[in-house]
Design a protein around this nucleic acid. Sequence first.
DNA 1: ATTGAAACTTACTCGTGCGTAACCTTACGA
DNA 2: TCGTAAGGTTACGCACGAGTAAGTTTCAAT
Lengths: 227, 227
Amino acid sequence: MQNSSLPSGDDAPTAARPADTPRGRVPRAEREQQMLDAAVLVFSRRGFHHANMDEIAELSGVSKPMVYAYLGTKEELFIACLRRESARLVAGLAAAADPTLPPDQQLWRGLKGFFEFVGAHRDGWSVLYRQARTQQPFSVEVAAMRESVVEVITDRLDGALRLEGRQVKPDDLTAMALTLVGASESLADWLADHPDEDPGRTATRLMNAVWLGADQLMRGVSWRPPA
Amino acid sequence: MQNSSLPSGDDAPTAARPADTPRGRVPRAEREQQMLDAAVLVFSRRGFHHANMDEIAELSGVSKPMVYAYLGTKEELFIACLRRESARLVAGLAAAADPTLPPDQQLWRGLKGFFEFVGAHRDGWSVLYRQARTQQPFSVEVAAMRESVVEVITDRLDGALRLEGRQVKPDDLTAMALTLVGASESLADWLADHPDEDPGRTATRLMNAVWLGADQLMRGVSWRPPA
DNA sequence: ATTGAAACTTACTCGTGCGTAACCTTACGA
DNA sequence: TCGTAAGGTTACGCACGAGTAAGTTTCAAT
């Protein structure tokens, strides 16, 4: 594993504007998307602090003051990236997570949706997210986001367990949810670094690990995704 | 959860030198440890980029050029912190991980050792580690470290499974190891944020989640730590 | 045609904080 | 008692890059 998706050195040349970017005037809405695309790319490649506004500007086919005019300061720009990407993720997950399904189906769909998203945005989301989790001004926002995900999972777990007649202390539930989330994050990083891995396969791997547990695996039991 | 261990705002005053730090001359070896202590603290509180060399210097009871003289640039200092802390961790784990034990015992000891370490260095290790994983110049070093942990786990898993007569494809093994590592990291963050949580308890929680799997838990089975 | 606002530029300012040059001072062995 | 090295200091240079002031061009509507 070479963590190619992490902000690294970087050999990457000060990427020239792609050919399909039309020179000349472009309406604001469109330009803003170009800026966000550029920003996600640069923030991912270089990391927040080493990212440089001039490069982002150039990549979006425009000069620096335009970026400031449209999307504000560097921090605000980063947050805008984060919000756009996470909105996309949430949209993807909302479709997948149907509380009326049986627990394993819910989990399966959720994981599948998540890894498909990560796979589709291979070096955007993971890197942005991980940076945001540790970098000063963003950690609060992202922590809250993650927290709410953990809460949803906790509730679903609780519901599923109650149906089975079991009741588990809140902290134990939280720990289970955190386990799941942490494992997902870890595998998401791996997925982002492995272009040939299929997201569904990653989801299946995790299903096997968390749904059956190592002990079960040892006995040769194996969970399979539905056709 | 308020993520109190993350680099945050920070209300923390430019911490004054603790009373027990002797004013006046101190031999190099000792001063270096003070510097590392200070650096870990400040890097954790503020994050690498917002950390300020003058504060670290002041906290270690000395002026800035001394820090440069002894431990080099800011980056080198951060790496020194990382190395010292990870050396401590590795030492702790080496003691715990005895390959001759049965698999569940191995895992249990390993997790216990890990969480005890995290608990003991509550706001040092986690924060440093997480920063290093995403910040430009350090990610390579830390990725390698993490990678080697994943490899050890992979090997142990493989060994355990072979003993049971099962054989698993390398990528599946890697995924299992990554799941375990990711889950541990996630719970480690949680532990670092919860002063009242007992590390052994956290280890038990994770054991339950990964060893039995959710499915088993649903049936009321529960793994318990040995007396 | 004219106006004016939206799209875009060049060319700066200026704070911040890393890193260092040049200089003291205390301990202690010869 | 004196030399010297280890421990320590003050005060500054300076690069970097975020953010902006002031201006220019294009287009669309009246």
